[in-house]
């Protein structure tokens, strides 16, 4: 499982840093390292670009897993350089931005847009497989999630926009319900295709979602 990010355009980052002179940069050794958006190489590249653009960089670090509690230790270790900056430019995904913000009073500016949680099908090919909707129906859809794999998130079969197994939104994209149909057929469970699913409950865990375990 990986948190998939896309680095924001440099102009947008500079826009957020408009009134800020000194910046401390934090990267992440896990997801954004693997996606090449916020690992050590990108942190160093960002440092150079910021300096070229006239910003002063008071320091940088790459936290091994920015979203976990060890982040607090790393921030304490780098306290002086962080406090020497006017803000932190955070290059982990949004989960890391949240974690970092817990321990730093300075503004934390995200350098990434966090897109989705994915599995890696083949090296470099990431696919969203779970929307964490709170009502798993994978047992009735042959292990293919129509909430994520169908553009419209339909739970009662395909729309009329499917064509030769492809989606109306993108001819390269497989129609989730054609995949579900094919796999149910192989499993000899086509009767499930005719099962009615009632409207979804969007308040399984009301937003903001949280739980105590």
């Amino acid at each position: 499982m990986k948190s998939i990010t896309k680095q924001k355009p440099f102009e947008e980052i500079m826009g957020q840093l408009a009134d800020i002179g000194r910046v401390y940069i934090i990267g992440c050794g896990t997801c954004t390292t693997m996606t090449g958006t916020g690992g050590i190489d990108q942190v160093l590249e960002m440092k150079d670009r910021l300096q070229e653009a006239g910003k002063r960089v008071s320091g940088w670090t790459v936290i091994p897993i920015a979203c976990d509690e060890m982040t607090e230790v790393s921030i304490k270790e780098n306290k002086r350089a962080i406090e020497d900056a006017n803000c932190v430019l955070a290059m982990p995904c949004a989960l890391g931005v949240h974690r970092i913000s817990l321990y730093i009073d300075r503004p934390v500016i995200p350098a990434q847009d966090t897109l989705f949680i994915a599995v890696e099908d083949a090296p470099g090919y990431f696919r969203e497989v779970c929307a964490q909707c709170g009502q798993c129906i994978l047992g009735e859809t042959a292990g293919i999630c129509p909430i994520t794999a169908c553009h419209k998130g339909l739970v009662n079969g395909p729309c009329g926009g499917t064509n030769n197994g492809k989606c109306e939104v993108d001819q390269e994209q497989d129609c989730a319900w054609t995949l579900i149909y094919e796999r149910l057929e192989k499993q000899g469970r086509l009767d499930l295709l005719r099962k009615y699913h009632p409207p979804r409950n969007y308040q399984v865990t009301p937003r903001p979602r949280m739980i105590k375990i």
């Binding site: 553009h151 009662n156 009329g160 109306e168």
Partner: peptide, 24 residues
């Protein structure tokens, strides 16, 4: 009807609702 997908139209950045589908 379920309705066509949002990106095929002229407000491509809009949120598609699909709270219900045609059978629902």
């Amino acid at each position: 009807l379920t309705g066509d997908a949002v990106p095929v139209g002229d407000h491509k950045e809009a949120k598609g609702v699909f709270d219900l589908d045609s059978s629902q």
